[in-house]
Design a protein around this nucleic acid. Structure first.
Lengths: 357, 357
DNA sequence: ACGCATTGGTTAAACGATTAATCCAATCCG
DNA sequence: CGGATTGGATTAATCGTTTAACCAATGCGT
């Protein structure tokens, strides 16, 4: 069936130069003993023939495929682009390729995805686990990116510190009552972020938490969050655990005639693509994806080289939490002195004024 | 160096069953001639030994790696998650793996990315080209996802029709003056969308176009688009060529006290992750990513199987444009009768009312 | 009974690179 | 001067599959 192999290979180079394949291999890899002269001649010739080593053959012989797998809980996650980009860059820089797999929601799919990658011969895996699932190590080294409080986590942003930074920021602006808006309390990441926020509150501050997914289960998808009511109750700041929730909050407030940041502040997490360009632009806390990816990949590769590359090991890194960076933009500002207490004004009325004027 | 291969392989299965490797291979692939009895026995035994074929060896022997490459102009593109997810799913269903590569902006990087993938032995490529770059075919079949008007395009959403749908929708709502908001006039996709919109306008309608990137080059990144002014001039609808621009427009309008959709309508493209959850939720036009991915992958694989899998061919499909679907949400509504002409009200005044009340 | 297909299986040669084991000088040193 | 060393290159085995070619035994028609 294979009618005519035509790509240049070691053997073709060898015969055309009148030497043995081993010599060519040695010259190109710089491993064996070849005179510098000959080596140079070989490299030249190989280059001009456009030689490209067969990864398949190399993989077969050495048992190293030069590929790692990236498993994501849900590719549609808005955070994914940055992560994938960073991982791809780090891996490529280290001479590795990246195979992706989407673990579409459920845990069985995640396991299947992992298996597929392993069967394809990946040398290691980078996994962003779904919600609170623990990774039962596959048959190769695994680096986990979730949050430092997850057992088995390799490296992640310091979500806790990010939360504290947000709390500090809001404290400095004079906010006393803060509503934390999260999606799901089962997410380790979101829990760390809430924890961080709470730990950063001054004694005279108070916070409560709104879980959107829970609310939607009762009131239907895409329901309103009732934030205008919260403003009336005296909340002056809305700290969302993700820019997506922050955006949701921001637009809802705006629609109800509550001017941000004049009358209420909104903050988010993750610095998603839209955050800098909306009006007002969003104050948020960004992960240092590049560093996270670097740490994950480098410690993964270290483990791969150390281990016989069999056994599923959970990789650990020396830096397991990477600082997050507060980015102050327009959506957060000093608390409105006239709106310090509950029910100073009636936002509903204000909204209707706006609509009807 | 390789001390102890341990994974079960054909030969191990063969000896443990007292047959030849060829027979095992045949039994497992169902190709050669093996009695049904023996075949069954072999399959059983292989399964319980946990046999996993070596992709590397198979790739080496057959020249088929079972992997395709996905090249993206910029992974950070918010559209990417859906695309990658769809491609990954289609490829996986067909038994292929997906290697990703980010072509980080410039065209040289795109070429390099392609080369890396080819060196890794991908059998074919799916490329979403950067802006208006033409793909100079690599040394393997290439499927291009851009827009039908791009020469060499394989399959894409019917952006033109999507534009027409938007125009129709706005026409039915009674809008006469429409501002199209795009990012960059060099994008084939955006141009098709504008073209579609224009072609769908009724004789009594009028549109002009605002290119954000051009504006930002003059007024600085993240500058305001001055849409309140446009409303004053009589524009009642803002048709953005991407949900990202639509969001930008929507938030700017809201901040300036212009209620959407009561006083102005906003529409987008792509149905990005945030579009359904903002307030008001965004009217948009969605691509059918699943179908696009299916067509791309299936015609790519068809070409791979047909060709000797060498030569870089630009794959073509029988369906080259997949319909887009209009999703009407809250951000578009009938034109405000009191706001039909220019300068009926002063939005700036209204905004300040809101802020000071 | 003899040639001829058919069935069920084996042998062995690839695929292309890596690498341990040799081999053959030429050189070095006591 | 002879044995040990070393630099420089070759031989050949190996990774795990696939597959063409081959072979033995059986069945069948004439």
């Amino acid at each position: 069936m294979p009618p005519a192999r035509q790509g240049p290979n070691l053997s073709r180079i060898a015969t055309s130069l009148g030497v043995s394949v081993a010599t060519v291999s040695n010259a190109l890899s710089g491993k064996g003993r070849v005179s510098e002269q000959l080596a140079e001649r070989i490299r030249e010739h190989a280059a001009e023939m456009g030689y490209v080593p067969s990864q398949a053959a190399r993989a077969l012989r050495t048992g190293r495929s030069g590929v790692i797998g990236l498993v994501l809980p849900d590719i549609a996650n808005p955070l994914f682009p940055k992560l994938a980009q960073a991982i791809e860059f780090a891996a490529t820089s280290a001479g590795y390729g990246v195979l992706i797999a989407d673990s579409r929601g459920n845990i069985t799919a995640q396991t299947e995805a992992i298996n597929r990658l392993v069967e394809r011969g990946v040398e290691g895996l980078v996994i962003v686990p779904r919600r609170a699932t623990r990774i039962s190590a596959a048959s190769c080294p695994v680096a986990v990116i979730d949050t430092a409080s997850t057992p088995g986590n390799t490296v992640a942003a310091d979500h806790w510190q990010g939360g504290r930074d947000i709390a500090n920021h809001l404290a400095e602006l004079g906010h006393k009552r803060i509503l934390v808006i999260g999606n799901n309390p089962e997410s380790n990441v979101q829990n760390d972020r809430v924890g961080g926020i709470r730990s950063g509150l001054r004694p005279d501050m108070h916070s409560s938490t709104l879980w959107v997914e829970r609310l939607e289960r009762e009131s239907g998808m895409g329901c309103t969050l009732g934030l205008a009511e919260k403003v009336r109750e005296g909340y002056t700041a809305f700290a969302a655990l993700s820019d997506l929730q922050a955006l949701r909050a921001l637009t809802e407030l705006q629609r109800d005639g509550i001017v941000v940041p004049d009358m209420a502040s909104v903050t988010g997490f993750d610095d998603l693509i839209f955050s800098p360009v909306i009006t007002p632009s969003l104050t948020t806390v960004a992960m240092d994806m590049a560093t996270i990816a670097d740490v994950a990949i480098s410690s993964l590769l270290k483990t791969i080289q150390a281990s016989g590359s069999r056994e599923g090991v959970l990789v650990s890194a020396d830096t397991d939490r990477v600082p997050m960076q507060l980015i102050v933009r327009q959506s957060s500002g000093p608390v409105d002195p006239t709106n310090g207490g509950p029910t100073t004004v009636d936002p509903a009325k204000r909204a209707s004024q706006t609509e009807n004027s």
